[in-house]
Design a protein around this nucleic acid. Structure first.
Lengths: 133, 133
DNA sequence: ATGAAATAGGACTTCAACAGTCGTATTTGA
DNA sequence: TCAAATACGACTGTTGAAGTCCTATTTCAT
């Protein structure tokens, strides 16, 4: 409960690593070996980071990844969004359509949870990748 | 990911309801009917709230639950702790023994995540039940 | 005493999400 | 043309969340 997924952790470790490389190319193999992360899992995470335009892929032999923008300009929230594909939602009514929640109409804690949700978003959005390098 | 469990939501709804009753007794049936929560699930959540000394149980016919302490004195964090039994941990190394994490030794994001963890705890600890009544 | 209304709590099932694996295709530099 | 790299869909195993079922115990009211 309230735990980040491994995919997000791997994404953060990867992007941190790439950011520390000064525009030199990093490969999946290099990162998965160094941090002991399953190769294929990391590969897919990095493909998502690429599609989310946080990093740039260089295909083919001697290929790999470099940063797409400054580490100052990427927050933990960005990584979560790109890797998970969904918004962070502390409760169902914030993560998906509110009507999906079976107790939505009678729910008396939507508003206070909304406040907590807002604060959480702030925590994740204000931590930048540059702070973890 | 990063979602509160239904048990925690139910616990918050229940304790909020009880707090609004001015020392009058509330029953599981009354609350589960009113908020459309499965009876047995709510019953067990309230048993946990009782064991955690957030509410007081009154057994037997005409029994039910009342508050054990002031709603000012109970935070969302308290409810999470009592209902889940575990600490909130944004990553494995904060939720359980750090050695259990397969990448612990090579992990470069422990410290930044620790900072986020700390901020999250603050968010949950500073919201009191009295604010949601 | 006895029955009804309430809490107490263990055992079980179902389902979805998470984490990881496997296989194959595509790109590109040497 | 081969090897090294990314791209990506399909599949499997495991775990935890959510809910159901069943029985015991307590206590008030008649």
């Amino acid at each position: 409960m309230l735990k980040l997924s491994k995919k997000v952790e791997y994404g953060l470790i990867a992007i941190r690593h790439i950011a520390s490389m000064n525009n030199q190319i990093s490969t999946v193999k290099e990162i998965s070996d160094k941090y002991n992360i399953p190769n294929e899992v990391l590969a897919k995470v990095m493909q998502k980071l690429t599609r989310g335009k946080l990093i740039i892929s260089h295909q083919g032999a001697m290929g790999g990844y470099t940063m797409a923008r400054s580490a100052n300009d990427i927050s933990v929230m960005d990584v979560i969004g790109v890797v998970e594909g969904t918004q962070v939602g502390i409760a169902q009514c914030f993560a998906e359509a509110p009507e999906n929640c079976s107790i939505y109409l009678n729910c008396t804690i939507k508003n206070p949870l909304g406040k907590i949700q807002h604060n959480l978003e702030h925590v994740f959005a204000s931590m930048k990748v540059s702070e973890i390098v």
